Computed example of a mutant assay.
Amino acid sequence: MTLSPYLFPTVAARTISARAYDTLTAEARSLLWYHDIERLPAQNVAELCGITADTLCTHLATAREAFMTSWLGLLTQTMNDHTRCSTVIAALPRRCLGRLTQPQCDDLDTHLTTCGRCALLAEEITTVCDHLGVALLPLVLGTTAWNWTPHVTLHPHRG
């Protein structure tokens, strides 16, 4: 499954979320699409992806981590990170998914209290983690929603 069946190419070129999604394996894209976008029941997602329901959680967590890692990488691509910030940024997806030890979390939190930029990225990745379906919304809505502006004329002038 690639992006092309789901969105207009101009949207894919413009959103970090779409570009991050496109870097995933076919299985990861399918898992995230069926589970987080279409909101299918876990059993259906497992059947569609050819995996057992028992392994779905593991595969889904791996897909989410890969998405968030790619998303963060694209977001921070143009930043000149200090070594410590780079280490913290790389750990943020694992923190969001609960894959860090308590000492690692404590170390991360210490840095986040002193570095505003990393704290903002941590907040952003937490939002993406908690609302992955919303982060991928441009894939679903296409260019109409992307280009919508609040000053759309609801009743065009007849003449």
Rank of each mutant, 00 (worst) to 15 (best):
M1H: 07
M1C: 06
L3K: 07
S4P: 04
P5L: 01
P5D: 01
Y6D: 01
T10H: 07
T10P: 03
A12E: 11
A13W: 09
A13G: 11
R14S: 02
T15W: 08
T15R: 10
I16W: 09
A18M: 10
R19H: 07
T23E: 01
T23P: 10
T23Y: 03
L24H: 14
L24A: 14
T25I: 02
T25D: 07
E27G: 09
E27Y: 04
E27M: 02
A28H: 15
R29W: 02
R29Q: 04
L32A: 08
W33H: 14
Y34C: 11
H35Q: 11
H35K: 13
H35L: 08
D36V: 05
I37N: 13
I37A: 13
E38D: 13
R39I: 05
P41W: 01
Q43N: 11
N44H: 14
A46Q: 02
E47A: 12
L48A: 15
I51V: 14
I51W: 10
C57W: 01
A61D: 06
R64Y: 06
E65G: 04
E65F: 02
A66Y: 00
F67Q: 09
F67L: 10
M68S: 01
M68K: 01
T69M: 04
T69C: 06
S70M: 09
T76N: 08
Q77H: 13
Q77W: 12
T78P: 04
N80A: 15
H82R: 12
T83Q: 11
R84F: 14
C85F: 13
C85I: 13
I89C: 07
I89V: 12
L92K: 11
P93R: 03
R94V: 12
L97R: 08
G98H: 09
L100H: 09
T101I: 04
T101F: 07
P103A: 06
Q104L: 06
Q104A: 10
D106T: 04
D107L: 07
D107Q: 07
L108A: 00
D109S: 13
H111V: 14
H111S: 08
H111K: 12
L112Q: 01
T114N: 10
C115N: 13
A122F: 05
T126K: 03
T127R: 09
C129H: 09
D130E: 15
A135V: 10
L136K: 05
L137T: 06
L141E: 08
T144S: 03
N147C: 12
T149R: 03
H151F: 01
V152I: 04
V152H: 00
V152F: 06
T153S: 10
R158Y: 14
